[in-house]
Amino acid sequence: MASLLRVFSLRTKIVAPALIAIALIGAYSFSSTGVHQRVHAAINDVELYFDGNSNTSVGARFEMWKGAALLYKAKPIFGWGNHQYQSGMAELIEQGKAHPVTAPFTHPHNEVLNAAAKYGTVGLLALLLLYAIPIRLLAPCLRAGSLPKRSLAAAGTLLTVAYIDFGLSQAFLSHNSGAMMYAFWLAVIWGCYRNQPV
């Protein structure tokens, strides 16, 4: 992450967040984007959760995250495995440590917690390397003199950052489409990047 921050000038570090803030405010302000309604629905779900109602999209995720954290705590080295996750969650439900809303789900809707609960610290480290290696290899070239090389470095870095973002509320790499797209596009971007002249 530090190498990613070093490639940007002070001006970029100030202007980029300002532009992002303006874009977010704009998206929120225009009702046609649907952002306003989604934000208010999420706030309502959080309020319902703290009032004791977990049967909402956000409430169910909070309960799944809590359950996954308990599963990781129970088996921190190698985790429960992909096929034992639901039985582990069922045990927590029987013990009253997890809400029944979590029962039908095969993952906790969070990539980091999914790796931790199912594959323990070993799987968690593997996931972090899956994110860190592309960023470490590509981010230093975000200031490359060659526009094609710089563009490919940006594409690879953005792909990885996007998957980190998706993983906040979905275990995207648990799905064939998610894993295949990540691997395919990283391979394509890396292949094109490596074939660029120095």
Rank of each mutant, 00 (worst) to 15 (best):
I22V: 07
I22A: 12
I25N: 04
G26M: 03
S31P: 07
S32A: 14
T33R: 02
T33D: 05
V35E: 02
H36R: 05
V39H: 08
V39R: 04
N44M: 05
D45P: 07
L48G: 03
N53R: 04
S54N: 03
S54M: 01
T56A: 06
R61E: 00
R61M: 00
F62V: 00
M64A: 10
M64Y: 11
W65S: 02
G67P: 01
G67R: 08
A68L: 05
A68G: 11
L71Q: 01
K73M: 05
K75E: 14
P76F: 13
P76D: 08
I77Q: 06
F78Y: 13
F78Q: 03
F78D: 02
N82T: 12
Y85A: 01
Q86G: 07
Q86S: 10
Q86D: 05
S87M: 09
I93N: 08
E94L: 09
E94M: 08
Q95M: 14
A98F: 10
H99S: 15
H99M: 09
V101M: 11
V101E: 14
T102S: 03
A103H: 04
T106W: 12
H107E: 15
H107T: 14
H107K: 14
P108F: 11
H109G: 09
H109Y: 15
N114H: 14
A116E: 11
A117Y: 06
K118W: 07
Y119R: 03
G120D: 13
T121D: 05
V122I: 15
L127Y: 09
L127C: 06
L128F: 14
Y131K: 07
A132Q: 09
I133E: 10
P134H: 07
P134L: 10
P134T: 08
P134Y: 06
R136M: 02
L137A: 08
L138T: 00
L138G: 03
A139W: 04
A139H: 03
A139K: 00
